[in-house]
Write a protein that binds this DNA or RNA. Structure first.
Lengths: 138, 138
DNA sequence: CAATAGTTTAGAATCGTTCAAGAGAAAAAA
DNA sequence: TTTTTTCTCTTGAACGATTCTAAACTATTG
């Protein structure tokens, strides 16, 4: 079962936060949540905004990505030590990452099962488990 | 069972590559491989070198970390999108990462089992699987 | 020892990202 | 509505990690 009307959901969540529904945030939410789940970087989203005649500064892209992440609308994925990726799919799942093409792809939740878990270091609790399957073109 | 004489092993591998055993590379290999397995960043290794009166430029630290990685003496671990970490333990294993302290810790190989694996994207093969268990102070 | 090929260095350059201050827009108060 | 307050956006500067450049240096080879 898949979430329906993701854009509407995102708008609802936007309203639920203290974030004002500004022109920029609405436009970016529309780009991000209108279709299927996707992955963006600040740069790729900026390009896409310009291509859609949405005038937004790069600083606002960064701010918005972080605000949406804090609001639970996006999830940051760490697969590359030079760039940040954001995933519109915030449910628990893992990733394929092709270092060659720099492309990130979701692994359907449940397709990977992590079996045994060691106890976390003294004084800490687990906040999340990230599995990244790195692939290369055959 | 643990690898013995890790420093000697590293020297042997250094010789096996085309890398010349320069003062800088020998000193860094000694720092990296003389004790137990460890994690470093370019900056942390540079500090440590200075503390041990090893005169090395930061550029050389970066070059050396990458050369050692290519030679299979180090493994790059991606857990942070702003810094690169290098692990002297190159065997297949996973990590705990505390975002608060920025500390990385090995998970003994075998302590985590990844069960089902989905087929990789069309035209690609798996090059490696990284599991990062993110933790926070309780 | 001389010649060559690889290495190191300081400093400049680059990249992704964040910061700062002023201009602008939305919300709240009057 | 108008005013006031608060938040947001923008540009451009600043930043931290990393890479590049070109010259000085060092290991290896003949």
């Amino acid at each position: 079962m898949v979430a329906t009307r993701p854009y509407a959901d995102a708008l609802a969540r936007l309203r639920a936060t203290k974030l004002r529904p500004t022109r920029q945030r609405l436009a970016l939410a529309k780009l991000l949540f209108s279709g299927a789940d996707r992955h963006v970087t600040a740069e790729s989203l900026h390009k896409e905004a310009r291509a859609n005649r949405v005038r937004v500064s790069l600083a606002t892209i960064y701010n918005t990505l972080h605000q949406f992440t804090r609001a639970g609308m996006l999830r940051e994925v760490i697969v590359d030590s030079t760039r940040s990726y954001f995933d519109t799919n915030t449910s628990h799942h893992h990733h394929f990452f092709c270092e060659q093409s720099q492309l990130l792809e979701d692994i359907p939740s449940g397709a990977v099962s992590v079996g045994t878990l060691p106890p976390p270091p003294r004084g800490t609790s687990i906040s999340r488990i990230d599995v990244v399957i790195r692939v290369h073109p055959r």
